[in-house]
């Protein structure tokens, strides 16, 4: 027997053997920083979420609070720290909801095919054809602004693209020989979906999760900015931009700081997703250029 002995690296899980690059390190640190702030915010923040600390509104950075005060004289720094909790938590919940919907329906459509697939796909396409902000405006307008409605609406809107990705993955992997082998063995649909197809679609789904998470942050911030999302006095970054946008003309940075924070969060998430996707292919673009 002279079987060739070219041995590839072991791939225990999708996370095995992921070496960090400097972009991933920076992005990861930024995300970790916000996560820590979100977890321990109330103990770190010098003031309360809605506590008015100064008579001066739109106080500049350094005066009356570390990062100045907002339009009601509240501490921008403290609200920023409280806001990261709301922003991250809501984004997480909506993304999880969108994946629960999207992946279940997508895999079901890929596996059941036929009428189920046609009907669900057409409904999803109808949803996608509708501008998502407009859709959210209509739904929230009809049902009123509450956190539940907000989360469900955004989750539903985001689930359309998750559906498309997971349906395509389900179709692709569903025709591979190892899935056929499982079918020939007599395995049921549940086994095939959870043991054969799902583990092999983890990498693209994780990448998709990161992207949807970013979208969700932007979308929620956008809705808050329009006054349809999180309501005062709760702190949310999108809401903070909206509250303080009038201060821009007075030379206040109270609106710019939360905007920059949103940007740091989304850019970091994107960098991390890029790195993860490229690492799954073996090498990142930067490493290829270096060679």
């Amino acid at each position: 027997m002279s079987d060739a002995t070219e041995i590839a690296k072991p791939r225990a899980s999708v996370f095995a053997g992921l070496r960090l690059t400097w972009t991933a390190t920076i992005a990861g640190s930024v995300l970790l920083f916000w996560l820590v702030l979100a977890l321990f915010g109330p103990w770190i923040a010098p003031h309360g979420e809605a506590e008015i600390i100064s008579g001066t509104t739109f106080a500049p950075v350094g005066e009356g609070g570390l990062l100045g005060t907002d339009k009601l004289g509240r501490d921008v720094f403290s609200r920023l720290i409280y806001g990261v909790r709301t922003t991250l938590l809501l984004a997480l919940i909506t993304t999880v909801i969108s994946f629960a919907f999207g992946v279940t329906l997508g895999f079901a459509a890929a596996n059941l095919k036929g009428w189920f697939d046609i009907v669900v796909s057409r409904i999803v396409e109808a949803f996608m054809a509708f501008p998502s902000t407009l859709l959210a405006l209509v739904v929230i307008g009809a049902f009123g602004t509450s956190i539940t409605v907000l989360v469900l609406t955004v989750g539903l809107v985001l689930s359309t693209s998750v559906f498309r990705v997971s349906r395509a993955l389900g179709y692709d992997i569903g025709v591979m020989d190892f899935v056929e082998a499982a079918r020939a063995r007599g395995e049921g649909t549940w086994w095939i979906l959870t043991r054969e197809i799902l583990p092999n679609s983890m990498a693209p789904l994780i990448a998709e999760f990161g992207l949807r998470f970013t979208f969700s942050i932007l979308f929620l911030s956008g809705l808050s900015f329009l006054g349809l999302g999180v309501q005062e006095p709760a702190a949310d970054w999108g809401l903070m931009v909206q509250e303080n946008v009038g201060g821009l003309f007075l030379g206040s940075s109270a609106a710019l700081i939360p905007a920059a924070c949103i940007a740091s969060l989304t850019v970091s998430m994107n960098l991390l997703v890029d790195w993860f996707q490229q690492r799954q292919q073996g090498e990142t673009v930067l490493e290829k250029i270096d060679q």
Binding site: R11, S13, D177, E180, A181, R185
Partner: peptide
Amino acid sequence: RDTLKDCQIVFQMADTALNPRQ
């Protein structure tokens, strides 16, 4: 299952016939 057990199939491409995550 008894019937399935008696007749097994082996595919051409060994690369794709084994689940890479198991």
